[in-house]
């Protein structure tokens, strides 16, 4: 799960064993070190709470690897520099990466 620390120290409220990656606005590190490799393989559903701007970047990168945002919910958190927090799920869509 990805958490954007600009919106405070968010806690993943569902299953506690899900690994959490945190970043602050700029997704470069998590994408380059983790997601780029994982998204080239089949499967891997990813959830997150991030700024809408970071989600746009992730969605664009995910699309390159046959993945889509399948759920997107704006959250009632205070905006940070006019950026809204969003809860989302990105899942494989294209046959080349579907599990």
């Amino acid at each position: 799960m990805l958490l954007d620390t600009r919106f405070g120290r968010l806690q993943p409220n569902a299953v506690s064993h899900v690994p959490v990656l945190r970043f602050s606005g700029d997704v470069t590190g998590v994408w380059y070190d983790e997601l780029d490799t994982r998204w080239r393989r089949k499967g891997f559903v990813l959830g997150g709470i991030t700024g809408a701007d970071a989600l746009f970047v992730l969605e664009t990168l995910a699309n390159d690897r046959g993945r889509r945002v399948v759920s997107r919910t704006p959250l009632d958190l205070p905006r940070v520099k006019d950026v809204e927090a969003v809860r989302w799920i990105i899942a494989p869509h294209h046959p080349s990466v579907s599990a």
Binding site: G25, D26, T28, W31, D53, A54, F56, V57
Partner: peptide, 10 residues
């Protein structure tokens, strides 16, 4: 060194 950090100016 490539980066996506520039997105903060959008």
């Amino acid at each position: 060194i490539p980066s996506l950090g520039i997105w903060e100016i959008v």
